[in-house]
Write a protein that binds this DNA or RNA. Structure first.
Lengths: 262, 262
DNA sequence: CAATCGTTTTCATAATATGAAAAAAGAACC
DNA sequence: GGTTCTTTTTTCATATTATGAAAACGATTG
């Protein structure tokens, strides 16, 4: 049992409880939650009661617990860039309608991308990513573009840190292979994910920039690999460019400018 | 300063902090947050650090605070009925596309409706409700349907409890007026909101039922009052019926059955 | 180079959250 | 319908935990 140095006990426990509730399919009973989190029943009870008072959890008629509306409320205000999600959504829906495949919007967070918005395909069989879920940079189209954008050195650094965990047989194995893919992708302005994160799933991604030219997000289509078409590339890029444009980005910033931080 | 009996101090404080962050337009500094919440800076700092560790908040490059991805993650799992939101969304989008006006999905929570999903009109001028926000039952189309559904007695009870706060000059003032509106609406199966919540905004709403015949949510279109058309009623009802159908509801349950609780 | 402002760490202290145990409230089982 | 389970809730003494004052640090500004 490790102990993070600075951390308020109750907060760490409350987080465990919320996760435990989220993990349950239906409502969760105190019994289950205290077992799941390893907390003493009366402790769990008290924390849950407090969470309920603040609206973080709710009690069902049976006295069970579920996540509360407050979380929805706060969750929808996440990302100072609430604005760019709003701007992107209609264009994501348009792209989704053109291709009839799921379109995702992701942002970078450390060495991962996080799914922040999506437009689901209206089909029975479709790719579906949970909002808030994560994936390492090197197994997604958008992530590889971001790596390419950062330049070779940063890319090597990432490879070293992450050890390039292998998600499928197609996941880039060597630094060389990754570098080559990322650089080429960044140069082209779009990237593929050929079943590198999950077998059977293929993506096409492009980057989104704000008025200062900074990359702030990535747009991608995800489809069962056998349905994916190369022709989509143009549409994905059009969509991402349109979003960037609406965010104030002017393409005039040179063809491709490798960043320089500090 | 009132003191709720059972409540863990840290949790109440953490809630205040999260609210304070959410209230800020951009990132918030420690200074601002501790001022806003009345917490001692070092206390606020420690709580925020813990929240950051769990991913509830994030720190910007400048060291400021913003809401974290974890909230998005949890927020998207709210409502055991995550499923019905998913089912409703495509049909909401379809309706939105037909009318080119904002479509909202709401659930009842106590004496209020909470906005849980939406499909925004793709127009410059549109009605826009924040997900997670609330409104009292008697000032919304869906809320009035829910009141009507519960029967006269429950409706009077609501009026007594809530005192029918007046949002605009059009808000139902008397119990009699409310009752008449709710009963008639429930009988018809749809309701209007004629600038009763906000001047200039008009809605048309209908209810959504699950397999057991229970009302689980409401669907509504919101538009600037001068754009709203009576003809939309049929489309709104079609959409809500289709959602109910997909949730397993069979209309065969009599024309209108006033519930019996207990 | 000071000086000011905001953030972070340290630390002794008291208040706070804790868990054991007892009490209530429901279920389940004759 | 009564009895015995289980599960939830309350109570309470205790020690652990979060607290806020103050000091250290760091950045920004004059």
């Amino acid at each position: 049992m490790k102990k993070e140095p600075n951390s308020i006990q109750v907060i760490e426990r409350l987080a465990r409880l919320l996760d435990a509730i989220a993990a349950q399919k239906e409502d969760a009973s105190l019994k289950v939650l205290s077992a799941e989190t390893g907390l003493h029943p009366s402790t769990a009870f008290r924390i849950l009661a407090s969470l309920a008072e603040e609206g973080f959890v709710e009690r069902t008629s049976r006295g069970n617990y579920r996540l509360g509306m407050k979380l929805m409320q706060l969750g929808n205000r996440v990302g100072a860039g609430t604005d760019f999600r709003k701007i992107a959504l209609p264009l994501m829906e348009k792209l989704r309608d053109q291709l009839d495949e799921t379109v995702n919007l992701t942002v970078r967070e450390g060495d991962e991308v996080v799914y922040v918005e999506r437009s689901l395909a209206k089909r029975m069989i479709r790719v579906e990513q949970v909002i808030g879920s994560r994936a390492p940079l090197h197994v997604t189209a958008v992530g590889k573009l971001m790596l390419g954008e950062m330049g070779e050195e940063a890319c090597r650094g990432y490879a070293k840190r992450s050890k390039l965990p292998q998600y499928t047989v197609n996941t880039r194995k060597t630094v060389a292979a990754l570098l080559q893919d990322c650089t080429a992708s960044a140069k082209r302005g779009y990237a593929y994910d050929d079943q590198e994160a999950e077998m059977g799933v293929g993506c096409i991604g492009a980057l989104i920039r704000d008025a200062s030219g900074q990359v702030i997000a990535g747009l991608s289509v995800s489809a069962p690999i056998e349905r994916r078409r190369d022709e989509w590339t143009a549409l994905v890029m059009q969509a991402s460019e349109e979003i960037s444009r609406q965010l104030g980005y002017h393409a005039s910033f040179s063809t491709h400018h490798h960043k320089g931080n500090t």
